[in-house]
Design a binder for these strands. Sequence first.
DNA 1: CGGACTGTTGATCGGTATCAATGCTCGTGG
DNA 2: CCACGAGCATTGATACCGATCAACAGTCCG
Lengths: 248, 248
Amino acid sequence: MSDRLAIQTKCRKCPLRDMEIFRPLDEKELKVVSEFKTGELTVGAGATILLEENKTPHLYTILDGWAFRHKSLVDGRRQILNFAFPGDFLGLQLAVSSEMQHTVTALTQTTLCVFQRDEVWSVFKNNPKLAYSLTWMAAREEQLLDGQLLSIGRRTALEKLAYLILHLHDRAEAVGYAGNLAFDVPFKQEHLSDSLGITPVHTSRTVRKLLERNLITWVRDRIQILDREGLEQVALYESDHETRRPLI
Amino acid sequence: MSDRLAIQTKCRKCPLRDMEIFRPLDEKELKVVSEFKTGELTVGAGATILLEENKTPHLYTILDGWAFRHKSLVDGRRQILNFAFPGDFLGLQLAVSSEMQHTVTALTQTTLCVFQRDEVWSVFKNNPKLAYSLTWMAAREEQLLDGQLLSIGRRTALEKLAYLILHLHDRAEAVGYAGNLAFDVPFKQEHLSDSLGITPVHTSRTVRKLLERNLITWVRDRIQILDREGLEQVALYESDHETRRPLI
DNA sequence: CGGACTGTTGATCGGTATCAATGCTCGTGG
DNA sequence: CCACGAGCATTGATACCGATCAACAGTCCG
């Protein structure tokens, strides 16, 4: 399947803007974003969106779909750094370093708004509010990473897994990908392993524990949280009262 | 000992600006930074600079000293997220969330440039170049966290430790805190443990291994790298060709 | 000199990795 | 419609890394 490239969604009519969690843009911002956006790209599940060590001229916002950022050691051991949902901005690091230091891969078919790397600067010059939004998103990503780091460094396998499921559920829910404490799972257990820093075999056993304790069910690519409170206890979960966020 | 608060270092004469790694500011930027900076604060080793769940009105740049960011689970398990050196900006997350979600603690006596949180916005409005620098720093921090995450998730204890020592050395060296492959260590093994996500006991044994293999020495609060190449091999190290960076 | 910290060492335990076999699901082609 | 194979997930046996518990040593400092 070949990737399509076309401008399809007008920023002004972006479906994401109607969502609760996104801060509405004013007229001027909309105008700048519209100009900033140079195209739209749809890729299939499993496609590489951004590749480590590459110097692409493009930055992206996810319009629809589910992706993940990851990074590997030379011998192949892989670590998933974070997952990415609609509204998430990809490739900001290209504003810093000439090349990517991690890879981004699509989990589902994913539609992306495409921006030109060179024009980031003109956004800063022309619209401080949007520039601020970019910074906001970078800082937000940092917070998520802090949380992951704490989790991977200090939680046990069972705690990490419980935490990750809650985390993914909450982020999925925020963009309408989850409801009634359930969501469709676009990943394999292998992805959980690489996210938690444990083995696939151990992941399987750990998932099993959550099932046995009747905290969740996981059937046919769908996870249902049965006992949110119980799961939060296992996870040592602390909600991070997310506020409305910017969308570019 | 009480903290002192006074404007002592003129931005224009900031000693950090002479360092190789920092990008020089132009006249206009210097003017804005000077106005942005509202004071200078020196705290002793062990002092808390920013506290989780607090809503302080201040942001900081480290002028001199060595600090660390950390975060804990409710039961006390602690994870060190990153270390901070001169030129590093602290508290950017306050631009995003109303309160801090991690704590920053000084390892040595530390001198900080103090900025007002409310005025971040005016920096964005008045000087896009500086705004861009802030974003740059946020993205850079994200890269460091990505690296840590990979390390903690996928490296063995020995590999993590070797990696961390190289990482700290390189960052220390960049700001003149290391030379001839050696640097003064302001932390205890306990800090390494909390950074690597392992036990103090195991940290001790792991440090010992590096010593036995003649990769480093560690005497009287000073680490000397004896065999950089060997250490890099153990660490599966990949240097990240750092470029010049902004300083605010 | 005594006490508080920090680091070291040994013994043992437990969590997670590893290796290997089996089972399950689903798509494909005979 | 069934056979087959590919890719995941599960399960069991065993190994090992790192945790835990406990005692002791070294250093610093009052």
